[in-house]
Nucleic acid binder design. Structure first.
Lengths: 211, 211
DNA sequence: TGTGATAGTTAGAAGGTATAACAACGCTGC
DNA sequence: GCAGCGTTGTTATACCTTCTAACTATCACA
């Protein structure tokens, strides 16, 4: 399983290409990402880059995969350190704020034709599993809602997780509420409004306990 | 104030250009929007289109403005027809589903350098005002939260609306919760999950009453 | 040490945005 | 009615992009 020197070199170059790609994306967004410009930055000329990525789409797909992986790692690390829902929210929020365009590469505007490769949906499920875990340990004194019973009938996506439907519901709400505030904040839609988005997030998630 | 025949013709051509632009965007997203292709569809060749829009950016800006205007009109129409929060949610949801890429043009991934023109932020405020109106007439039996008092101190963005801070809070939560579910749904992130997003939206908004 | 896969090069096709220079049309004022 | 001018269209062009083709040089390995 040891890698040949060629493979090692190849992997290094691929990483360097992606590093420059992330810089361009952070600076001007995905549309401004130019393979030519990256190639020059890396020190090779134009088409040589196609030895490492079949094209623009494959490079972007690799970036999306890395972003998903990074997010899942952050979430699992936080959970591993004993974080509950507030701690997980902090982890996701920090991850998103550290590079908004990376967050939007995962959760932003989709390209109509694009279908995510299977492994990213697997990573997505991995994140969801952690959220459900954290939700399952929260106290639950509310009666089941209509959506809870609906969820009970459509819980295949939880991948056999044993948590009650109410926990799945909570995980979904956690995800959508956090994303709702976070994406609007990062997109600048709270522009003129002077309130602190963190407080809104905190309250949105606190309300989760009361459902 | 009557418009000359030239102005009328010019306005018609601009509309036709935007019509084709929307078709391209709906089909393949903003990145695939090509001025050249649009020009050919309209029946003129290439650079002639620059007589009507100074460039790609100006065309897209015009589309964003129209999208904002259309959304605001839908919201106001629903409100004018007596809709409360559930009705407003339906209106926004229907508007978004009728053309997801139009929704994402307004609320999707932002371009790092881009600053929205002033009139669109005005329209955004117009929408917000309607939401606050609807929230103000909802019964409110909850004690004020910490975020409520924070909002009371930072309510300039509500543009002098007389509603109590709790109503502003509710309007913000309505907006962020709806956007959270809607954008994830439209982006396909509920892919494998078989639950009905409408039920989740309904429950997220019902929980608004309990804060 | 020879040989073949790999990594790089330049050339070029196809298509994009955008500008410049020019022709033709039509509205407007006299 | 008609001269003149602004507007709308054209083609040519510059420069960018992605991506393929053909060719060369290098490096690992038998």
């Amino acid at each position: 399983m040891s890698e040949s020197p060629r493979e090692r070199y190849r992997a290094q170059v691929r990483e360097e290409i992606k590093r420059h790609a992330w810089e361009q994306i952070a600076a001007a967004g995905v549309p401004a990402l130019s393979l030519n410009a990256i190639a020059k930055q890396v020190g090779m000329s134009g088409p040589a880059l196609y030895r490492y990525f079949a094209g623009r789409d494959e490079l972007i797909t690799a970036l999306i995969r890395d972003a998903y992986r990074s997010l899942a790692d952050s979430v699992r690390a936080a959970r591993g350190a004993g974080a509950g829902l507030p701690g997980l929210a902090d982890a996701i929020r920090d991850w998103a704020r550290s590079d908004p365009q990376r967050y939007f590469l995962v959760y932003g505007t989709p390209v109509p034709g694009y279908h995510a490769p299977g492994d990213t949906t697997a990573i997505s499920g991995e994140i969801m599993a952690v959220l459900i875990d954290a939700c399952a340990e929260e106290p639950d004194d509310e009666p089941p809602t209509p959506f809870d019973v609906h969820l009970e009938a459509h819980r295949e996506w939880a991948d056999g997780h044993p948590a009650p439907a109410a926990a799945l519901h909570r995980a979904l709400s956690f995800w959508t509420r956090l994303h709702g505030v976070l994406s609007l904040e990062l997109a600048g839609h709270f522009g003129g409004m002077k309130f602190d988005p963190d407080l809104l997030i905190a309250e949105e998630l606190a309300a989760l306990r009361r459902r």
